[in-house]
């Protein structure tokens, strides 16, 4: 069957690039990895491929923490709820079309 080998294109960034783009400190990124805001193991951050989604999540987490005063648990909770809503929206859309 054709197409099985087609590679997916994904913009990826090194940790250094992410730190420069976001202005977030390495230790903060590490902390976000530890609490699960980023789906990257804390031991892997130096070699990890970060995506546009990682950058957006980092910026949003920092925004929640610095601008709205949320602690890390609150940040994680909001991020999880956001992801859940997104997943449910997708499922609802799928069901509505059937």
């Amino acid at each position: 069957m054709s197409g099985g080998e087609q590679p997916i294109e994904r913009q990826s960034y090194t940790l250094e690039a992410v730190l420069e783009i976001t202005g977030v400190e390495r230790d903060t990124v590490l902390r976000y990895c530890e609490i699960g805001v980023l789906a990257i193991g804390p031991d892997e951050i130096d070699d990890a491929d970060f995506t546009d989604e990682s950058i957006r999540r980092l910026l949003l987490a920092e925004h929640l923490r610095c601008q709205h005063g949320l602690n890390l648990v609150g940040v994680r909770m909001i991020m999880e709820l956001t992801a859940e809503v997104e997943r449910l929206r997708e499922e609802l859309r799928f069901q509505l079309e059937s």
Binding site: T22, G23, L59, E62, H63, C66, L81, E86
Partner: peptide, 24 residues
């Protein structure tokens, strides 16, 4: 979309520098 509630998020203010300095 719930993510839209965060539209306009950014790094200006509150993180990385005083209000009088360069703000992204």
């Amino acid at each position: 979309d719930i993510h839209r509630g965060f539209s306009g998020f950014g790094r200006g203010g509150g993180y990385g520098g005083a209000a009088t300095g360069p703000q992204r």
